Amino acid sequence: MHEKHPKSGRDETSEQRADRRWTDLIQEMRVALTGVQILFGFLLTVVFTPRFPDLSDTDRTIYIVTVLLGSASTGALIGPVAFHRMVSGRRIKPQAVIWASRLTMVGLVLLLCTLTSALLLILRVATHDVIAPVLVTVILVWYVLCWFVLPWWAKRRYTAPPAAVDDGQ
């Protein structure tokens, strides 16, 4: 039996909704995973470059933090795939979609931290200047605006309130 979902207004069963949301989530994760995997792969090679021993202790610490953040981000963004595989066929797809969505959001926050940390390291090495933290802060604000503030604003601005229930009065 089809039911019109109160939030989406779509005529779909809860299973169909879970399937659609899962497909949407997988498409979104593909974009994030590609970026984090490229960045993480690059980060893993930095330690083997001739210039790495010349980094200051602060820059080495930033590098280690960045690698750890990149690893955590990769884990969180790949986590939904493992989660789905482990619970597949158990008839809990709606719950799996919720947990996969949460893992993806954690992964995106960790990716934000990874990108910010990597940018800080690169700009510190490239500029040898106090301007690096200022530039990183500007980019961090930009990421937060694009990734979180704009979607939050759009959600609040364009989501219709639930339809009033007509109780005959």
Rank of each mutant, 00 (worst) to 15 (best):
A154G: 12
G89S: 04
F83T: 13
W22P: 00
Q37G: 03
A72Y: 05
F42P: 01
V136M: 00
V144N: 04
V125D: 09
I62Q: 10
H2G: 07
L103Q: 06
S71L: 14
D11V: 03
E15T: 10
T137G: 09
K155M: 14
I78C: 05
D167Q: 12
C146S: 15
W22S: 05
T127C: 07
L120K: 07
D54A: 08
T104W: 02
V144F: 05
W147A: 15
T66R: 04
R91F: 13
P151W: 13
V97A: 05
T116M: 04
A163I: 09
T74G: 11
L39A: 04
H84E: 09
A82H: 00
Y143L: 02
A100M: 07
G89V: 14
G9S: 04
A126C: 05
R102I: 12
A126W: 10
C113S: 10
V130M: 05
T34C: 05
M86V: 09
G168M: 03
G35S: 00
V165R: 13
R102V: 10
H2F: 13
R51Q: 15
F148N: 10
L120N: 09
A163Y: 04
V144L: 06
Y63E: 01
V125M: 10
F48Q: 05
R10A: 14
W99F: 13
W152G: 15
F40D: 08
A132M: 03
A82P: 02
G41P: 01
A76G: 04
L43H: 02
M1N: 09
F52A: 08
T23V: 13
Q27L: 12
G79Q: 11
P53Y: 14
F42L: 10
Y143S: 01
M1G: 09
I62K: 14
G168R: 01
